[in-house]
Every structure is written in structure tokens, then in C-alpha cells.
Design a binder for these strands. Sequence first.
DNA 1: ATTTATGCAAATCGTTTGCAAACCT
DNA 2: AGGTTTGCAAACGATTTGCATAAAT
Lengths: 163, 163
Amino acid sequence: MGSDEVNATTSTGARRSRLEPELRARVAKRFLEGEYRFTRNREALVATLAAADRPLTIPEIGVAARTLAVSSIYRNVAMLEALGIVQGVVTASDFAHYELAEDLTEHHHHHLVCSSCGAVEDFVAPAQLEDSVRAAARRVGRKSRFRVERHSVDFIGLCPNCV
Amino acid sequence: MGSDEVNATTSTGARRSRLEPELRARVAKRFLEGEYRFTRNREALVATLAAADRPLTIPEIGVAARTLAVSSIYRNVAMLEALGIVQGVVTASDFAHYELAEDLTEHHHHHLVCSSCGAVEDFVAPAQLEDSVRAAARRVGRKSRFRVERHSVDFIGLCPNCV
DNA sequence: ATTTATGCAAATCGTTTGCAAACCT
DNA sequence: AGGTTTGCAAACGATTTGCATAAAT
């Protein structure tokens, strides 16, 4: 079916970069509140996600933090997600994608999802769209028992590589 | 017009119903164009999805079409997706969810996705939201090489069952 | 009669988990 | 020390696939 290649050498932004102090402090705080340790590996994982300009898969994270065992990446990503530091992005890809939570990045955005290869790109929506989405969310909250926590607006189509 | 439905039917909402003739004809046409056979099992599968008011998982489809082997459901759903009859819905659930394609249902809608249990409900968005989304989609088409085919607006949160 | 669809069971592969050694405070 | 974290390998489970049989045209 889907040839779902994740070429990890594409532009994922900076190489093994350090975490900016301010972000580092905020992440460290959440770790300590959760009574977890802020190890070098975990810092590298967060730094990798912070440096990327799009959600990354576990294999992609593994390339950037190659000292870390794959199983540990899975474990850490799950923990980071529980701590609200990382957020999963669902796509049709074989691999799950992860990105930093928005309250850490201060950068509300949405995704362009390729229906062919599952690749994900970020994009920032016009203010008008955000206003409409928020209004609709409030309305759902009024009309049903579903408690809306956040929203996602995805544009699904074909990325440049898939024509 | 005024009623955007947030139908929360019980977990197994689909009854073994027959396919309405008009829809049946349109689906059958696509099968023949694809040189596939419109078997009783496949008709039952489409009927099950048509009768549901939300995207279903493969196990849920299996309950409604219990004569069909699970592997055949997977195979048929994949084929239906390739034919554009069925559309996958990505959630955090362990199971993929599927629904009839929108050009068959004539019923454009979006989803409330439970972040806890992965359940999915349909909801119809206000016209204003749809206008904003379409405008943003056009803008993406202009500003990038990504070819937008469709969009999805999901509200993620907690369903009534998950408090 | 010939081609396609189905059922069954085995294989696949991303992800999870158990456990002993390595690590942090 | 007393705990947590890590690596390794084995386990897990949703989905896929090979092949012989059944059904459709």
C-alpha cells in the first residue's frame, strides 16, 4: 500500500542543538513536578523536537538522539506526552508523529498532511479561521456533553514530493 | 439548517440495514468501474457504514457483518478506500475508524475525538467555520506547493463516557 | 470455465514490556 | 543507599498476506 518512507536526512532544521534556557527551565519544572528526572537523554529528546519545524516520528527522533535505545524513546515520549510536554499527531503514516506541546512553543499552528506518504508540515492559520474554530468549539460545548480541550485543523492532500 | 447534530448513540449503533437504492446504484457503479465485484459481503459492509452515525472500527463493522472474516473486512475496507467510497479517520484509538466518503453521503461534517478512549462522533460545523476553512485552504494552495484535497476539523477532548 | 473473493492461519512490524545493569541525587 | 532510567530481547496486537476453496460473472 503506502510506501511510507521517512527520509530522516531531509531538512528537519538544526542538528543536535541545545535547548534554549528559558524553554529548558519550563520543561525541567514539569519534570520535577512529575517527580521525574531530567536526564541528558530526555533533554536531547526535547531539544530535537524543539529544533524541528514539523512533527517527527520515533525513527526520526532516533537519528537525532542516536545514543538512546528505541524502546527508551517510546517510553520517554509516552511520559512526555503524559506530562503535557509533547503532543501526538495522528496521521495515516505507519509511524506516529510527535511535536512539542503548544503551550511550550507559544506557536499555535496546524498541519498539512500528505495522504500519500503521511508526511506532515506545519502551517499557521489566518486569525479569522482561528476565531471561527473557537466559536464553533464553544458552540459544541454548549450543545453537547463533549468537553472540548483543543482542536486540530488539518489540510489533507498531496505534498510536493508526491506530486 | 438549525440543527447541528451531535449524535451520541450507544456504542453499537448500527443495525443490519439495507442500502438505499440510490446510494446502492452509485456505489455499484464505482465497483464496476474499478472492475470489482459487488458482492453481498461488500454491500453489507457499505450498508453498515451508511447506517452508522459515526465512523466505525473494523471490529465494529465485524459485529454488524458477522459473516465476514476479519481479514476480508480489512481487505475490503482498503479497496473501498482506494475507490473513494470509504474514508479513513485518524484517531488516537488502537483501531482505525472508517466512514463513507462525503461525496456519497452529501453530508459534510467533522469529528469530536475523545482523547481518552478514542471514540469518534460526528458534528456539523456552522457555515461560518466552513467558509473560513475553505478560505484558508485556498490560501495554502497559493502559498505553498501542497495540493489541498480536503480538510478535517477535529475537536479533541473528553466524551461524556470519559467525564 | 475463468476470474475474483473469501476464510484461515501464519507472518509482519510498530510498539510495549520484563528484567538486570547503569545511572542520578 | 535508594530509587529511577536504560538497553536488550522477548512479547504484544492490529493489520497484512499466502494459499486453497468458494462464489461471482
